[in-house]
Design a protein around this nucleic acid. Sequence first.
DNA 1: TCGCGCGATTAGACAAAGTCCAGATTGGAC
DNA 2: GTCCAATCTGGACTTTGTCTAATCGCGCGA
Lengths: 136, 136
Amino acid sequence: MNYTRDNMAGLLRGHEINPTHQRIEIAHALFSRQEHLSADQVMAAVNTRHSETSKATVYNTLKLFLEKGLVREVIVDPSKVFYDPNTTPHHHLYEVDSGKLSDIDAGSVQISGLPPLPDGMVTEGIDLIVRVRRQP
Amino acid sequence: MNYTRDNMAGLLRGHEINPTHQRIEIAHALFSRQEHLSADQVMAAVNTRHSETSKATVYNTLKLFLEKGLVREVIVDPSKVFYDPNTTPHHHLYEVDSGKLSDIDAGSVQISGLPPLPDGMVTEGIDLIVRVRRQP
DNA sequence: TCGCGCGATTAGACAAAGTCCAGATTGGAC
DNA sequence: GTCCAATCTGGACTTTGTCTAATCGCGCGA
């Protein structure tokens, strides 16, 4: 897969997002890395040379991407939210001491026996997080 | 089960925690309710009549309880951490719009097919969170 | 009983993540 | 080129949580 800035415009349009410069840069930061980035890290990635994109825009854009289903939110650390460019069903492995976050393919994992949902509720998502720590 | 303040002292001692007034009050707030409370809510619960316990003590104490295995941390909402007096294995149901958090008994739920852990890592915990939303 | 030592508590300053707003900028349509 | 709506921006603000230095209070030995 080729995550050039040019391809980003199409990706954004495909999700009903008006592709502006800033949005393309932010999408590029996330998708070219294929990693889990926090808002801070996105901001740093986008503003490497000189300050180009404001904090407000980074937050607004990440929220927009989230609403439009372009990225996923991963909540594992109380201090910051991570954004995940991989929106296919999968789980997460979180290394508590290093803060490293990686994907667990959903293919082989089976979750069964979940109780029925309360009336009038629909599932928004199922998050499975395996927290690990380096052996002492 | 009877979660009186008197019993709290024993509970704390059983976990190698020196039972002070403030710690007893905080434990009582959590265990008598048997609910998921945020630090803010604990503080409010403990200081209903007149201010009795400082913010620093609430945070210190919750962290202490966590280390000593008296409570569990539940990270579902980026804006605040919840503390769970139920430390038996179980999962969580989170109602996104209301912020309501409830337990899912682990008994009937089966998770299988998790990949092996990276070398030298030990599992600290597995969090399964079902996010639901009121049907539109 | 007195005072000592030490763990626990406190107020308040501070830090970091995220939100909000009013004004400036941009870029497409005409 | 002009206009307009959408977008972006700096900076003030809020909230959650941390830190620190001073104080408190309780057990214990003399």
